[in-house]
């Protein structure tokens, strides 16, 4: 039971990260039908920017560690959003009219570009976030000591997701985003500036990715320039698991994948941890290709 609780909370914390990343994938896919392969690397960029900000601004001197973490996440979100905006302008917008394969290759190129740019700037070695930003206290849950950071991670990702959910479902701009996802031409006829909405999505998605990057840096303490590939792929699997293009689906998929992975690593084998997500992917595509919450029937050819 103790082991189970530990793994469950760990899975929820990491699942929150997957969910934040999956939201970026699912929003872009919902609007452009494009897998933004560089999204995972934007996440890494966020982690490294957080690292640099932490070192240069001396945020750890802030009164409360939590406040410092919050400021860090916000700053990193802003910067990564700009990177995402530029990415869409340079690598995706010129390809809007050409076939999907070109966009996929362009996305791959962008991913390689970001990954190697980070390696050139920060070196191939992993970087370590300084200690003591997040409180090291523990909570007693059902008689088990669980680190508080897990709950903080979970709460932070949940808060961001609720904010996004509110934004997409309750504001005018959110309605425009949903309209563009359903039918671009009809949305244009209704006076929606489609290009602007796409740019906006490429601001929101990477911002969430950047936040996830800082959070993973604070949680694991260690970041590498190529971690975006694995995290990105798993987050994409989470998006498919929940039903791609579906925002609550991405949240659910991320959490589920995090829990499945943590429990699988604990009870099956830690060496096969990375393979579990891919097995989940293959199973979901065979048995329910629309994902758990996907209402729209994916056009199986």
């Amino acid at each position: 039971m103790e082991e189970f609780l530990q793994q469950l909370t760990n899975g929820l914390a990491v699942g929150g990260i997957y969910a934040l990343l999956a939201l970026g994938y699912t929003m872009v896919y919902g609007i452009l039908r494009l897998i933004n392969f560089a999204h995972g690397d934007l996440f890494t960029l966020g982690a490294y920017l957080g690292f640099t900000l932490l070192a240069s601004l001396g945020l750890s001197g802030l009164a409360s560690g939590l406040l410092a973490a919050g400021v860090l996440i916000l700053l990193s979100m802003g910067l990564v959003a700009v990177a995402g905006f530029l990415l869409e302008r340079v690598a995706y917008r010129p390809l809007r009219k050409s076939d999907r394969l070109s966009a996929v290759v362009s996305a791959m190129g962008a991913s390689i570009f970001f990954q190697n740019a980070l390696m050139l700037v920060y070196g191939a070695k992993s970087q370590v976030y300084p200690d003591g930003i997040l409180p090291e206290a523990s909570l007693i849950l059902l008689g088990t000591e669980v680190p508080l950071t897990r709950f903080l991670m979970f709460a932070a990702s949940l808060a961001l997701m609720c904010l996004l959910y509110w934004f997409v479902n309750r504001t005018r701009v959110g309605a425009a985003i949903r309209a563009v996802a359903i039918d671009q031409d009809a949305a244009r006829l209704m006076g929606i500036d489609v290009n602007r909405i796409i740019s906006l999505v490429f601001l929101i998605g990477p911002a969430l990715g950047g936040a996830a990057g800082v959070m993973i840096g604070l949680y694991y303490g260690q970041i590498t320039h190529d971690m975006g590939f694995t995290f990105g792929l798993k987050a994409f699997i989470a998006a498919i698991l929940g039903g791609i293009g579906n925002i609550p689906g991405a949240m659910l998929g991320g959490m589920l994948l995090g829990i499945i992975e943590a429990l699988g690593a604990a009870y099956i084998s830690i060496a096969w941890k990375d393979a579990i997500a891919f097995c989940v992917l293959i199973l979901i595509l065979i048995f329910r290709p629309t994902g758990l919450l996907g209402e729209r029937v994916a056009d199986k050819v």
Binding site: V90, A91, P94, L95, S98, S102, A103, V105, S106, M108, G109, A110, S111, I112, F113, F114, Q115, N116, A117, M119, L120, A124
Partner: peptide, 17 residues
């Protein structure tokens, strides 16, 4: 060395555009 992969990635984007 490492910069060549950077160029490789940029070239992939440029080629597709």
């Amino acid at each position: 060395s490492s910069a060549r992969m950077l160029i490789f990635g940029a070239a992939m984007i440029a080629m597709m555009v």
